[in-house]
Computed example of a mutant assay.
Amino acid sequence: MREVSVSLGSRSYPIYVGPGILREVGDLARRHLSGERVLVVTNPTVASLYAAAVEESLAAVGFVVRRAEIPDGEEYKTLATVAALYDAALGAELERGDTVLALGGGVVGDIAGFLAATYMRGVAFVQVPTTLLAQVDSSVGGKVGVNHPWGKNLIGAFYQPRFVLADVRTLATLPLREVRAGLAEVIKYGVIHDAAFFAWLEANFEALLKLSDAAVEQAVATSCAIKAAVVSADETEKGLRAILNFGHTLGHALEAATRYERFVHGEAVAIGMVFAARLARRLGYFEPAGVERIAALVRRAGLPDAIPPDIAPEALLDAMRRDKKVAAGQLTFILPEAIGKVRIVRGVPADIVRSVLVEY
Rank of each mutant, 00 (worst) to 15 (best):
92 A>C: 04
78 T>F: 02
170 T>L: 06
107 V>S: 00
346 R>D: 10
268 A>T: 13
200 W>R: 06
25 V>N: 02
346 R>H: 15
65 V>M: 03
84 A>V: 12
344 I>T: 13
280 A>S: 10
297 L>A: 07
79 L>M: 13
150 W>S: 13
70 I>R: 04
359 E>G: 11
147 N>W: 06
191 V>N: 00
260 Y>N: 08
300 R>F: 03
346 R>G: 15
300 R>L: 07
96 R>D: 02
270 A>V: 07
200 W>A: 06
90 L>R: 15
338 A>H: 13
111 I>E: 08
248 H>S: 08
272 G>I: 02
186 V>R: 11
187 I>A: 06
32 H>K: 10
116 A>P: 01
332 T>W: 06
90 L>Y: 14
21 I>Q: 04
306 A>T: 15
121 R>A: 12
164 V>S: 09
203 A>H: 14
247 G>P: 03
220 V>T: 03
64 V>F: 14
76 Y>E: 08
179 V>R: 02
87 D>W: 11
140 V>R: 09
308 P>L: 09
160 Q>I: 08
127 Q>W: 02
206 E>R: 14
281 R>M: 14
87 D>V: 13
178 E>N: 12
83 A>K: 14
19 P>T: 01
40 V>F: 01
223 S>Y: 02
244 L>T: 07
287 E>V: 10
17 V>Y: 07
198 F>R: 06
229 A>E: 15
65 V>E: 05
355 S>Y: 09
86 Y>D: 01
223 S>N: 02
322 R>F: 10
248 H>E: 07
87 D>T: 14
208 L>W: 06
211 L>M: 03
75 E>K: 11
59 A>V: 15
15 I>S: 13
168 V>L: 01
353 V>N: 05
242 A>T: 14
278 R>F: 07
310 D>G: 12
260 Y>S: 09
245 N>T: 05
267 E>A: 09
54 V>Q: 01
325 K>D: 09
139 S>W: 04
313 P>W: 06
1 M>E: 06
304 P>L: 04
209 L>T: 08
118 T>C: 03
115 L>P: 00
192 I>N: 10
219 A>Y: 00
210 K>P: 06
98 D>C: 05
191 V>M: 08
239 G>C: 12
346 R>V: 14
176 L>Q: 13
251 G>Q: 06
91 G>R: 10
57 S>I: 10
271 I>T: 03
236 T>K: 12
358 V>P: 12
11 R>C: 14
319 A>S: 11
341 K>S: 13
322 R>M: 08
210 K>N: 15
